[in-house]
Every structure is written in C-alpha cells, then in structure tokens.
Design a protein around this nucleic acid. Sequence first.
DNA 1: CATTTAGGTTGCGAATCACAACTTAGTCGA
DNA 2: TCGACTAAGTTGTGATTCGCAACCTAAATG
Lengths: 159, 159
Amino acid sequence: MGKLTEPLRELAENECGLPCALEAMGERWSFMILRAAFNGLKHFEEMQSSLGIARNILANRLGRLVESEILERQPCPDDRRKVEYRLTKRGEGLLPAMIALRQWGERWGTGVPSNPELCDSRDRLPVNDVRVHAHDGRPLDWHDLEWVDQSEMIAEAAE
Amino acid sequence: MGKLTEPLRELAENECGLPCALEAMGERWSFMILRAAFNGLKHFEEMQSSLGIARNILANRLGRLVESEILERQPCPDDRRKVEYRLTKRGEGLLPAMIALRQWGERWGTGVPSNPELCDSRDRLPVNDVRVHAHDGRPLDWHDLEWVDQSEMIAEAAE
DNA sequence: CATTTAGGTTGCGAATCACAACTTAGTCGA
DNA sequence: TCGACTAAGTTGTGATTCGCAACCTAAATG
C-alpha cells in the first residue's frame, strides 16, 4: 500500500469511503451508542444510564444516527411514552468495524484479558481476530495491499 | 448478541476494549491521519496539504498518536528540518478497523463504485469484505454472536 | 547572507460538549 | 380522578475543543 503513483494516491485519498463513514460515526459517543445497540439496548433512558452520557448529547447522537439510517426510531405501541431505537441493516454493517476496534483496544490497550469474550453462539468458541483477507481467504497485512485502478485492469485483460 | 444476563451485560459494556480504542482514535481527524500514514505519507507538510487539516490540529493529533504509540516520531538524519512519522506495529494493527470503516462507507455511503480498489498485491484481485469470522472461519453476523464468560466455560469443561 | 522550507506555536472567534434544571406527554396506583 | 412517577426529550450556561490565520525558529538552499 506504499506503491502509489501520484494520480492514484490522489484518488485513493479523496474517493474513499472513510470520510463518509466518519461523517456518520466520527463524533464522540457514536460508537459507544452503536455498541449499546448491538448489546440489545433499545431505549433512551437505558442508554443514558448505561453510558453515562449527557441527555442532550445522547438525543443529538440518536437523531444523527437515525438520520444516517444506522438506527431506526419507532414509538412503542404498548407504552406510548417509550421509543425504540433499532439497528438497521446499514447499522448492522458496522459490526466488523466495531469489533475490529474493540479487538484492537483489547489487544493493545490495558492488556486486559477481555472477559466475557465474544463467541460464536453455535459452539461458544471465541471468534477470530478481524482481519483483511484476500480474494481466496489468505489473511493480508499492510504490505500485501495495493491500490489497483479497475479501468486499467480491464485494459490489461483486453490485451 | 442480544442474549445477555444482566451481570454479563455490565461486564460486556464496561470491560470492553472499545472505550480504550476510542480514546486513541476517537477524535476528529485521527482516522484520516492514520489513513494517510497507511498510504505512505510520512511528513507534517505532506499530511497537512493532503488532508487540508489545520496545522495546530494536525500537530495536536500527531502528538497524541505518538503518545498512544500508534505513530513513531523520528527526526530525519539527512535533512534535520524534517521529521518522519511512521506506523508502529500497534498502528498497523488498526488496519482491519480502518478498512472495515472504509468498506462500510463505500458500501452504504454515496454508492460510489470505489476506484481504485484495494487489492492483494500478489494477484491484484480485490480483497474480501472485512467480516467477523468464527473460530473455524465461517463468517458470522450479529445474531450469531454471544458473550461467553470464560470462567464459566472452564467450569463447564470440568464437569 | 537573503530566501525558502519544515514543523511547529499562538491568538481568537465559532462550534461543540457537559452538567443541571425544566418540560411535555403518557402511565400507574389508590 | 388525581397525584406521583416515568420516558424522552429541550433549554440555559459555562468549559472545551475546532478551525483559521498569523507568527516563529531552526535548518537548508542559492
């Protein structure tokens, strides 16, 4: 991933999904709220007391997450005071990013052995570390990566 | 991951690597600076002009990333004005999280087809989507996950 | 020796955060 | 049916942080 010609580097940096992801999830608390949602918390008061976040900030973040369609806001029919915030498919798509971050924090953070551990519910064995994998499943590191212009690939294939 | 008994839920939320990861990477620009580092940018001015970030903010972030030992700050011997910021192993460990975020942004963001594409340099084929995998390699989704208390597992195994 | 470059620092107004108090609508128990 | 309580916010206020521009210092360059 160090082998960039100049025009490619420009593209790689500007036409990248990262800024877009950060626009939705880059603010303080957003990831903590997402984690709470993954852990099954659905209500404002639940999240507020669990996270210890200020109420106005929580209201603002929930609003933004709903706007980004990461959460879905639905008033409860049985108790009309309550509101349910539920993960959308888009929100569920953030699972790998969240777990990768969490695992990094556990690996390189305080060195806590992390208990309870995240497991496959089928066999209750711990999940693998989240990694980048090649097309054929080989795990890849930074130096195995490269930016490839797909239009060039098509041109090459045509030769 | 919704099947938490109350004490387990407490643990899962408080004894979690996520807050620790966010302490290091949760501020605005941190991930963009990390991406720049992965793309081979090493110098202050390079990053500043590439990212369009304010100089004081960049200085502050680089300082924090060095403090967190995600980047390493080394004065260049050949030109003693220059300073090199290099990824540490700890910093490289953030690759999966960054790629996962980037892929999410590409998938759910503007819908841009993302060109150039991140590829395995060995065969120049696009990498897989970053996912959570079980111990045996099966890809897992949110509902396949569960928190397991390892001390309980040991107790169970002893039976 | 004057100019340019690299990597910052400083000052200041604008935006965001955090804490507490208040509000509004709906529920519950007597 | 009425007072107490709960859920989900909103408002006000001070403390932080952000972003921009200008400035600074040491080193290289011509």
